[in-house]
Design a protein around this nucleic acid. Structure first.
Lengths: 348, 348
DNA sequence: CTGAAAGCGCTAACAG
DNA sequence: CTGTTAGCGCTTTCAG
């Protein structure tokens, strides 16, 4: 079974100066040879170690330019063990996501690169994305978890994955997370409207299988109960569909609702759409650019995105530094921004 | 040159079963030992090669589970040369970006992972991001380029970087790109309004240092010239600032404008904001969720995001497959969607 | 500073 | 199928 002397060799021939230079990238060895210095010295120059003389450094830089050398971080990371990279697995990259923005900013400040991917609210895709990031040995992952089984994370966590959940906790798993104070936000909205004289307040929210939607709806029911208000026809949760929301609004108004609290920014838009005559007060959950497009401007419960993002990075870095530190679950306060839509009293 | 028997060994001790198991991740060798099979076999199982027997495969899987083994793609990629990863360097991750969404989708269909990062419209950050992706040896990069000097890309391209620009070309560099037909969009908008009887049509756009803004403004001027319309006070370009846009709209109306074409979605919002009485026709560039929130619904020139994204991935894959193929610059048609705001004739 | 060498964890070629 | 081995490109230790 002799393969003979010259089997198809696809491009190694390493002992020789390569004649197929087109196809091989120069390595540190090549740079060292070109510059006439030790490999060690090239490594130092590339990682700009101060202990290398100016003249040598120049020669190395010249060689790098001459050869078009580009360092390969895969090898560096493999050798070093760390990658200086955080993954962000979010529901949808191309949607407005101030928390992600804050995460990127905070990571940059810590000299960490954030690489992000969408989970599309798809359980299997989330898993693919997160596992892929694990196999790439990202130093840590910021996850906006889907409300589904996260058992697949257990072996990763056991193997050393550093993870922080934002916006929602990872159900059934004891991992660091940072979440808005949804209940306090609803209470603030309710109290605000009640303060303007509203007694019949409705809630239109997202599907309660979503963690935040569930928290907000529950808080609303508690507020109503505490105020002694009836809930019949006043709480509407479900998928974000124009028709459903229009129905919900119509039903609530039929029952005498004079004010509406919404469950998130998208729902706020649909509620406004369903309320052409502006005789109903609205407090929306989540601030957005649209809030000041509407008339009157929308009063909202705003999350502190900056705090959420930077806290997430803080927790993640601490977890990376000490994998066995206690789990932190941080709740970030929200703020009610009165802009007009929530300050109209009920019609006399 | 005897190394002596026991120099300080910082944690490798590979001949032995490791006693500091806490700190070391298991590797393929460990799995092979645990399963009592050859390393080769483990590699085959992990890459699910069909040539491995069921019984052996089971033993390997058991060993993987028992040890909590997680493959390390850094090593795999280093060995293989390719990473199966595309980078996306976009202006702002956390903004609405249907093209990015299409890019992710198309890449997934090709079994490529997309990892994205923001350039924040900052020249230096773009460079950091792109160079970082190059050093990580991503197979290719989708770039939404800033209107700035991209000379730093030259050595990367020479070294084998596969790159495709979306939305704008890379100035001064001959690289693949896919762009909307901005001029045709403006012409369609102009003709549409003219067809409804408008003779005084204004344009409010973004800063002309931005490529698309420049293309659109230029096309508008050409349309007006062709129609024999005067341009005085009718073309307003500059940064997206509420006051500037309100001024622009007021000026144009003072000069008798009965219709406005806008340069992008954000400007559309501001123009609508500045036009409370709805006696001015509007055609906006770029579709958005807001378009149907307004009254009347906004007539827009919509980009074909899906086509842009999938074309970008096609070009990139072709470039990866053949680095010396000719450069393609693709222009994707746009579509005018009549929704109401652009179909009102001028006031009698 | 240099030169040699080990090793990060993987793939793949080779000989059994 | 197994066992061995070279090598991807880098960092880092060690001895001059």
């Amino acid at each position: 079974m002799a393969f003979g002397g010259d089997h198809e060799n696809d491009g190694h021939m390493h002992g020789e100066v390569n004649r197929r230079a087109k196809t091989r990238r120069p390595t540190m060895v090549d740079v060292a040879r070109e510059a006439g210095v030790a490999l060690r010295t090239v490594s130092r120059v590339v990682n700009d170690d101060a202990t290398v003389g100016a003249e040598l450094a120049r020669r190395v830089h010249d060689a790098i330019a001459a050869l078009g050398y580009r360092p390969d971080e895969r090898a560096r990371h493999l050798r070093l063990g760390v990658t200086g990279t955080l993954g962000a697995a979010v529901r949808q990259l191309s949607h407005v996501n101030p928390v992600l923005r804050a995460v990127e900013r905070a990571a940059r400040a810590a000299d960490l690169m954030v690489l992000a991917a969408s989970t599309e609210d798809d359980e299997r895709l989330e898993r693919r994305v997160v596992e892929s990031m694990c196999r790439r040995r990202f130093d840590g992952i910021v996850l906006e978890p889907i409300g589904a089984d996260h058992g697949y994370l257990l072996p990763e966590l056991a193997a050393g994955l550093s993870l922080v959940a934002v916006d929602r906790p990872v159900l059934g798993l004891d991992v660091d997370c940072v979440i808005s104070d949804n209940a306090a936000g609803i209470r603030a909205a309710y109290a605000h409207l009640a303060g303007y004289g509203h007694r019949r307040i409705a809630y239109v929210g997202d599907d309660e299988r979503i963690f935040t939607a569930q928290e907000r709806a529950t808080a609303f029911r508690a507020c109503a109960a505490e105020a002694g208000a009836a809930l019949d026809g006043m709480v509407h949760t479900g998928p974000i569909e124009r028709a459903r929301i229009a129905d919900a609004v119509a039903t609530a108004r039929g029952r005498g609702a004079t004010a509406v609290i919404t469950g998130n920014a998208t729902i706020s838009v649909e509620v406004v759409r369903a309320l052409p005559d502006r005789d109903t007060a609205i407090v929306g959950f989540d601030d957005s650019e649209l809030a000041t497009l509407l008339r009157p401007d929308l009063t909202v419960v705003a999350q502190d995105d900056q705090a959420i993002g930077s806290t997430a990075i803080d927790l993640l870095r601490a977890r990376i530094a000490d994998h066995s530190r206690p789990v932190h679950r941080v709740t970030v306060p929200v703020e009610l921004l009165a802009r007009g839509s929530g300050e109209q009293p009920p019609p006399a």
